[in-house]
Design a protein around this nucleic acid. Structure first.
Lengths: 118, 118
DNA sequence: GGCTGCTATGACCATACACGCATACAACGT
DNA sequence: ACGTTGTATGCGTGTATGGTCATAGCAGCC
């Protein structure tokens, strides 16, 4: 799964290590708070205070989530005096969400079609 | 994020409900056991007994994971006498994993480049 | 150096969920 | 109807993690 690239020859089972990498990445995106932070940072870089204002999460919570996102390479930060300015590269996550959303729409449409065929 | 489609005009923050849908979907994929089951079913439909043999997970565990995947529309099953034959449609998950894997490779390559630039 | 503002992190608690054991449920054959 | 096989589900346990409060650590100013 996800080994051979899109549309090319299917290959064997991915290694446990690779599956673990995948699961960890998806786990990162499974938490709404982190998705929300990425949404806000997508619009422009921000410091923690403005993320607190934008999301309502506590300072410590935000700091921890950002730390996780940073470790995974989804956000980076620079210092501006006492402030840390966080910046996200959301391209991958946007694409993932787009694919998921498209699929959800398709499923809903199928269900709708089935109901209307009754 | 993931609202406007790939490459088109960025739009505003997705609704909390949509974010929740995304997080739930990613949570589904965050569990290695479920990824592993999808890997096996990608290769062909299977009953629980053969999935037990292939993965080493217990019968009850597999049954539960399949139940979750089924509820999300990622697997379906048909009865063959006392047996249930499960089948997965892994196209979306394969694509997601491919994107994640590509990104991981890019990151590793960057880190390697940086080390070699020292 | 002391003080202030900003952020990271220690410690703790509550909750979700993975996972196993036991058993209920479904299907089939006799 | 009974017994067997295959699978779903109740129940309980252990662990990870979300989230808060308190405080340590960082940066800047006087």
């Amino acid at each position: 799964m996800g080994v051979a690239g899109h549309g090319s020859i299917p290959s064997s089972i991915p290694s446990p290590e690779l599956l673990e990498e995948f699961s960890q990445f998806f786990r990162l995106l499974s938490e709404p708070a982190r998705l929300q932070l990425l949404c806000h940072l997508r619009q422009g870089s921000a410091d923690v205070a403005s993320l607190i204002e934008a999301t309502g999460f506590s300072q410590s919570h935000i700091s921890r989530q950002l730390s996780q996102l940073q470790r995974a390479g989804l956000v980076t930060c620079d210092r501006d005096g006492v402030r840390l300015i966080y910046r996200a590269d959301t391209e991958l996550v946007e694409e993932l969400c787009h694919l998921v959303q498209t699929r959800m729409k398709q499923r809903l449409q199928q269900q709708l079609d089935q109901l209307q065929a009754v």
